[in-house]
Design a protein around this nucleic acid. Structure first.
Length: 303
DNA sequence: AGGCAGGCTTTTA
DNA sequence: TAAAAGCCTGCC
């Protein structure tokens, strides 16, 4: 168990509810269990007070930033408790959580006078980050996502993992399943795949898995060339249109300028930006702002 | 070539 | 019953 000090925008619940990841699970004491590749992390936000009284803080706390001490001294800092080693945090989780990116800086580029809607959205959704998820998992997850709401997506993905993923145990002894490899999905029977309730998308998922197994799709080589080239390559896949390809770009390949347009964002563009959206002004962070608007508009209209 | 209608599985609200 | 982080096919 380690403590990590985070000074940048970072909100576990907002990330979990943002719709970019589908396997973050709320656990006891307001924490979350995160599965990434074959690893599992339990993370809790601690109050600064409890961390201070909990033994020697200076030894226990690892700064999330190279200049964390300076930022921590100026602004506020939060302490998080993670059930991993310092090495695992440095090598895996800090990268997965995109801790090298300064989201506060990205957020503060928004001019409240020029773009009050985006400013309001970003203020409201402050704490969202763009995770560096496994590309294969992101591709399949967003193929599954099409024409379904988020609870339904989560249910299908969890069923898929239970049936074809690897069974593991977290630090609390709870079971978790890894996201299935292409080979594991390709070898599923029709009956087993049908149990995941993918509907008409099951053939897309199976095809993607088969394409990787037979070598016609190399996930490691997808991200080569210009953004347009990568997008073109992705939309060539069966069941992958512009929207799913954009999600793969943003959430699987971490192109922060990718801008997925789904039914919610379409409404935002129609109602709030009928005279056009200034993509050029927001490059290369269009995808980050998209996440603020997506979450904000969705939360607001679901009230 | 590019656009549009219709169909598609199942869950959620 | 309509809508859901859409896409494919067939047709024009």
């Amino acid at each position: 168990m380690i403590n990590v000090e985070i000074t940048d925008d970072f909100d576990l619940e907002k990330i979990a509810e943002s719709g970019q990841c589908f396997r973050w699970q709320p656990i006891e004491d307001g924490g979350y269990r995160i599965i990434h590749r074959d690893k599992c992390l339990c993370i809790w936000k601690d109050s600064l007070e409890s961390a201070l009284t909990d033994g020697d803080r200076s030894d226990a706390v690892e700064s999330a930033f190279a200049d964390g001490d300076r930022k921590g001294a100026l602004g506020h800092a939060d302490i998080y408790r993670l059930d991993c080693t310092e090495e695992e945090y440095r090598d895996i989780w800090s990268s997965y959580l995109d801790m090298d990116e300064d989201y506060r800086n990205i957020r503060e580029k928004i001019d409240p006078e020029l773009d009050p809607f985006l400013f309001e959205a970003a203020e409201h959704e402050r704490g969202i980050r763009i995770l560096k998820q496994d590309p294969w998992e992101a591709l399949i997850s967003f193929i599954i996502s099409q024409n379904r709401n988020i609870p339904a997506i989560k249910a299908s993905i969890e069923k898929l993992c239970e049936r074809a993923g690897e069974k593991c145990f977290d630090s609390r002894g709870e079971v978790y399943y890894t996201f299935p490899t292409p080979a594991a999905i390709a070898s599923m029977s029709d009956e087993l795949l049908a149990e995941c309730k993918l509907g008409y998308r099951d053939k897309y998922v199976r095809r993607a898995a088969e394409d990787v197994v037979n070598g016609s799709l190399d996930i490691g080589l997808i991200d080569t060339g210009s953004d347009d080239d990568v997008l073109k390559g992705l939309t060539g896949l069966y069941g992958v249109g512009k929207k799913v390809a954009s999600c793969m770009l943003l959430f699987g390949l971490h192109h922060l300028n990718a801008f997925p347009v789904d039914v919610w964002i379409k409404r935002v563009l129609e109602t709030e930006y009928s005279k056009g959206y200034p993509f050029d002004d927001y490059s290369p962070y269009n995808g980050v702002y998209q996440q603020y608007m997506f979450a904000y508009y969705r939360n607001r209209t679901e009230e």
